[in-house]
Amino acid sequence: GMDVRRLKVNELREELQRRGLDTRGLKAELAERLQAALSGPSSG
């Protein structure tokens, strides 16, 4: 899988935006949010 901790802030935001998620917050928050999205149930 993707290691969200290795991504830069702008990369985290890009991935979040692609999934329609909130791109605001600290890098740690963005990484946590993206990780949750990646490990969560895949819809679609």
Rank of each mutant, 00 (worst) to 15 (best):
S39L: 14
A31P: 01
E32L: 09
G44T: 13
E15H: 07
A28G: 10
G25N: 01
D22F: 00
P41M: 14
A37P: 01
V4S: 04
S42K: 11
R19V: 03
A31D: 03
G20S: 03
L16Q: 01
A28E: 14
L30T: 01
R5D: 10
A37D: 05
G1V: 13
L7E: 02
N10L: 07
L12P: 00
E15Q: 08
K8V: 06
S39N: 13
L7D: 02
E29R: 05
L30Y: 01
S39F: 09
R24V: 12
M2P: 10
R6H: 12
G1S: 12
M2Q: 08
E11Y: 04
G40V: 11
L26T: 15
R6V: 07
A31Q: 15
M2N: 07
L38V: 08
Q17M: 11
E11W: 05
L16D: 02
A28Q: 11
L30R: 00
T23R: 02
V9S: 06
A28S: 13
R33N: 02
A36T: 09
D22I: 06
G44F: 10
R24S: 15
G40W: 08
D3I: 09
E15K: 03
G1Y: 06
S43H: 12
K8W: 01
R5S: 14
E14P: 00
Q35T: 10
R24F: 05
Q35F: 09
L34E: 00
A31F: 08
A37F: 11
V4I: 11
R33P: 01
R33K: 03
A28I: 08
D3R: 08
A36E: 10
E15W: 06
E29W: 04
G1K: 13
L21A: 05
N10F: 06
A36H: 11
E32F: 06
R18Q: 07
R19G: 04
L34A: 01
K8S: 15
L26Q: 15
R13A: 03
K27I: 12
T23V: 07
E11R: 05
D3T: 06
E14S: 09
R6A: 11
T23W: 05
S42Q: 13
G1Q: 12
A36D: 09
E14V: 09
M2R: 09
D22S: 08
K27A: 10
L12H: 00
L30I: 03
E29L: 05
E29N: 05
G1P: 13
R13I: 14
E14H: 10
T23H: 08
L16K: 01
R19Q: 05
G20C: 06
L34P: 01
E15R: 04
M2F: 13
S42D: 13
Q35I: 15
N10W: 09
G25A: 01
Q35P: 01
N10M: 08
L7S: 02
R24P: 05
G40T: 11
E15I: 06
R5I: 08
L30S: 00
E14Y: 10
P41V: 14
P41W: 08
T23Q: 06
D22L: 04
G1D: 11
L34I: 02
R5G: 13
R24L: 11
E32H: 10
L16T: 01
E14T: 09
E15G: 01
M2E: 06
S43I: 13
R33D: 02
L21S: 04
A31Y: 07
S39D: 14
V4T: 07
R6L: 11
R6T: 10
L38G: 03
V4P: 09
T23S: 06
S42I: 13
G44H: 12
S43P: 14
E15L: 08
R33I: 02
R5Q: 11
L38P: 02
